[in-house]
Simulated scan of single mutants.
Amino acid sequence: MESRIKIADILLDSLPFIKVFRNQIVVIKYGGSAQVNPKLKEQFAKDVVMMYMLGIKPIIVHGGGKDITTMLGRLGIESEFIEGYRVSTQESMPIIEMVLSGNINKELSAFLNHQGIKAVGLSGKDGGLFEARPKDGGKLGYTGEITQVDTTLLATLLEKGFVPVIAPIAGGEGIGHLGYNINADIVACEIAKSLQAFRVVFLTDTKGVLDAQGQLIPTLTKEQIHTLKANGVIIGGMLPKLEASLQCIENGVQKVHIIDGRIEHSLLLELFTSTGIGTEII
């Protein structure tokens, strides 16, 4: 009987959050272990199904850095990163698109459909969703920064009850251009800004944002992020996430969450419980 009462308490605790999220757009950046571990993939899919059934409108943007690095390595192509961003060469760009838009995107879409929701796989090239130009003047090759977002297709899909699954490949300049590899964190932010999404959630392989002692920081403000960055506490792959987070917060997104995707049902625990499990940027 005590276990049943505890279950009821958990459901009651989540009720106010469910009310707040109903009919809202939530953009989820899906990556890390949750994207490659079979059990975590299944738990993630069930979380998305639950959100969908509760009347929330999820949009999933996925990365694929580990798979890209593995495939490039098999082909004898070295991976290079600058300040957390991949350098995408003319040689590697077709492989990057193949892994993201071909392998990962379609596998994830099919997996979500199998779990009971209508998922549609896209990239920025579909419906002119987003276009880009070379990032940092081209020093990262075909790694780009988004210049334009057209959410017409996304709005139509959401209205019809579909869950968009987006690969971070952008259209380029003119017919025959290879396109651009965009950091998936940035894509999630730009999509959220354009749709005035309610929340953005980044799934990572860390507890969230950590302080100099390695302890989780539950809540962060813009000023605290700048201080942590200046002190060298925030480095590597966390830099693009926090840059994207600030862009989101400054452009109408209510909160951004950075959570540990290695925890089962991390999405539900973060969004629908009073304690949460990760870092929220406000």
Rank of each mutant, 00 (worst) to 15 (best):
T204H: 02
T204F: 01
T204N: 06
D205Y: 01
D205V: 01
D205I: 01
D205R: 10
D205H: 04
T206N: 09
T206G: 02
T206V: 15
T206Q: 14
T206I: 14
K207Q: 14
K207N: 11
K207D: 15
K207A: 15
G208D: 08
V209D: 08
V209F: 05
L210N: 10
D211L: 11
D211S: 07
D211C: 09
A212P: 08
A212L: 04
A212T: 06
Q213I: 00
Q215T: 11
L216G: 00
L216V: 07
I217W: 05
I217N: 08
P218K: 14
P218F: 13
L220W: 06
T221C: 03
T221S: 15
K222V: 09
E223D: 15
E223C: 11
Q224H: 11
H226M: 08
H226I: 00
H226E: 14
H226N: 12
L228W: 08
K229R: 14
A230K: 14
A230D: 15
N231R: 15
G232K: 09
V233W: 06
G236R: 13
G237C: 03
M238I: 02
L239P: 05
L239W: 01
L239A: 03
P240W: 08
P240L: 03
P240F: 05
K241R: 12
L242I: 15
L242N: 03
A244W: 03
A244R: 10
A244I: 04
S245D: 02
S245W: 02
S245F: 00
L246T: 06
Q247T: 02
Q247A: 14
Q247P: 00
I249L: 15
I249Q: 01
I249K: 14
E250K: 11
N251V: 06
N251K: 12
N251I: 09
V253R: 01
V253N: 02
V253S: 07
Q254L: 12
Q254C: 03
Q254E: 14
Q254V: 11
K255L: 13
K255I: 00
V256F: 01
V256Q: 02
V256M: 04
H257P: 08
H257V: 08
H257G: 07
I258P: 10
I258F: 10
I259M: 02
D260L: 09
G261E: 05
G261Y: 05
G261K: 01
R262D: 00
R262Y: 00
E264S: 15
E264N: 14
E264T: 10
E264V: 02
L267D: 01
L268W: 12
L268T: 14
L268F: 13
L268C: 09
L269Y: 14
L269N: 06
E270W: 08
E270C: 05
L271H: 02
L271W: 06
F272Q: 03
T273L: 12
T275V: 11
T275Y: 04
G276M: 09
G276V: 11
G276I: 05
I277E: 05
I277H: 06
I277C: 06
I277M: 12
G278F: 07
G278S: 07
T279F: 06
T279Q: 12
E280A: 09
E280L: 11
